[in-house]
Nucleic acid binder design. Structure first.
Lengths: 116, 116
DNA sequence: AGTACTGTGTAGTACACAGTACATAATAAC
DNA sequence: GTTATTATGTACTGTGTACTACACAGTACT
């Protein structure tokens, strides 16, 4: 699903039982013009900047990494992590490309409880 | 070390025993204007596009992921890998942020020989 | 002294990104 | 049934990216 329709659905879902989730009010809280948010939702405009996506995610209560991904973006903080040790992490990621979710999850847990 | 000075040093090193590594000739092989490469090397211009960095890496025999990192960029193919499973990989990377190199390397090997 | 190479200065192009501003049309509330 | 609110259409702006084109200047050979 594209970014625009996704956040529109999400917002309309919130709107259905909370009147403060109109396009205008969300736009105001997020700090952009309603016309611009309208265009984003209808995919007339491409997804906004990372900062704006984060504020939208915050307002709609959605995972920011997921929204960024739907917008075709990778969070700046993740990019930083990779850039610091580029060849190493490049290698890791390319090796994990085809790994099934559960294998990656196992590694996440292993690392989190890791005693190196 | 910044991107510009790094590739200048690298090129001049090659140049010292191979005359075909002049700024002009490298620029021609890479497919950009010499004046532009000059500006990149002196950091008058910011680093070029990913595609151009790849061609430079290729010509100078350097690791493309390393050059991209020095330019503050993350390779598009790596971004793709993350984007496909954003929340999962975001979690993994943030957990690996502080992990020492050898721990990451161990995981790389583990995954490469992995039987899931 | 001429030519052949080396790098650099200046100027400008084309296009994408991230929006604003205002007018108008549709819908809901009272 | 008018007022208030909602969503859209159109037009425009400023900033960054990724370059090109061409003229100029220094050095090296011969």
């Amino acid at each position: 699903m594209p970014f625009g329709s996704y956040i529109r659905d999400l917002r309309e879902c919130r709107h259905s039982d909370d009147r403060s989730y109109s396009l205008r009010q969300v736009a105001q809280r997020v700090g952009i013009e309603p016309a611009y948010l309208s265009k984003i939702e209808r995919e007339v405009a491409s997804p906004p900047s990372e900062a704006t996506i984060r504020r939208i995610a915050d307002d709609l209560g959605e995972n920011p990494d997921l929204l960024l991904a739907m917008a075709g973006k990778v969070s700046k903080d993740l990019q930083e992590i990779i850039i610091r040790r580029a060849p190493l992490f490049a290698d890791l990621l390319r090796n994990l490309r085809e790994a099934p979710d559960h294998a990656v999850l196992r590694i996440v847990r292993e690392v989190r409880d890791g005693d190196w």
